[in-house]
Simulated assay, not measured.
Amino acid sequence: MVMIKNSLLALGLLFLLSSCDEHRFFDEYKEFNGKWNKDSVVTFSFEQKDTVSRYNMFVTMRNTNSYPYNNLFLIVQLQQPGTKLVKVDTLEYQMANPDGTLMGEGFSDVKESALWYKENVNFPKAGKYTVSIQQAVRQAGNVTGIQELDGVTEVGLRIESKE
């Protein structure tokens, strides 16, 4: 009887977790070995056929407690299919609370953050889109960027449909 209850509980939990992600259109990560070099550009490509629906786009980060800064600067580029047109955004995100503890979700020393990139967007052309992400963290008063950003284990791109 206990085994049946546990099986039903596990099945219900699996169903609940899978149904929470029904709006996911694209979700992919690139791994790092605990450091993100400023010359390492992370690139994601996806096929989009729907030119009508609206989407939310997120840069997703997984980092450890060895991440040394309160914030994160990124340069994100979006290229439309069949063109050389690239939209470039320089973005800043808060990564730590005032006491220095990392923000984000997670029970261990690895925290995951979903950082807003674009909200309520549509893709005007059908075809292959490419998103490139590069870290651009700098220390105060220093023009050159941090060569290796400690504590970054994965960088990702997540796209969710709004419907």
Rank of each mutant, 00 (worst) to 15 (best):
P124N: 04
K111W: 00
T130E: 05
F44K: 07
Q94A: 12
V42M: 01
L115R: 10
N56T: 03
E105D: 13
Q135Y: 07
D50Y: 01
R138C: 12
N63Q: 11
K128P: 00
E31C: 13
A140T: 13
D109P: 01
Q139L: 14
R24T: 15
K111E: 01
T90R: 03
E47D: 14
G156H: 06
V137H: 15
V131C: 04
E112I: 03
V155F: 05
Y55H: 08
D50E: 05
R54A: 11
F123L: 01
S161A: 14
S45G: 11
T130S: 09
Q94S: 14
Q139M: 12
A10R: 05
L9K: 14
A114D: 15
L157H: 02
M57F: 03
E112D: 08
D27K: 02
G100Y: 06
K35Q: 13
F46W: 04
V121E: 06
A96P: 03
G34M: 06
T130F: 03
G127A: 04
I75T: 14
E28F: 04
V152K: 02
M95V: 15
S108P: 02
K38M: 08
T64F: 00
Q77F: 00
S113Q: 14
M1E: 15
N37I: 05
V42T: 14
L115N: 15
G82W: 01
M3P: 01
I75S: 12
Y55A: 02
L78D: 08
E92Q: 11
E105K: 09
K5I: 14
E28K: 14
K128S: 12
Q79H: 04
K162C: 08
L115K: 09
N37P: 03
S132T: 05
N37G: 05
F25L: 12
L17G: 08
Q94Y: 01
S45A: 09
V143H: 10
T51P: 03
M57E: 05
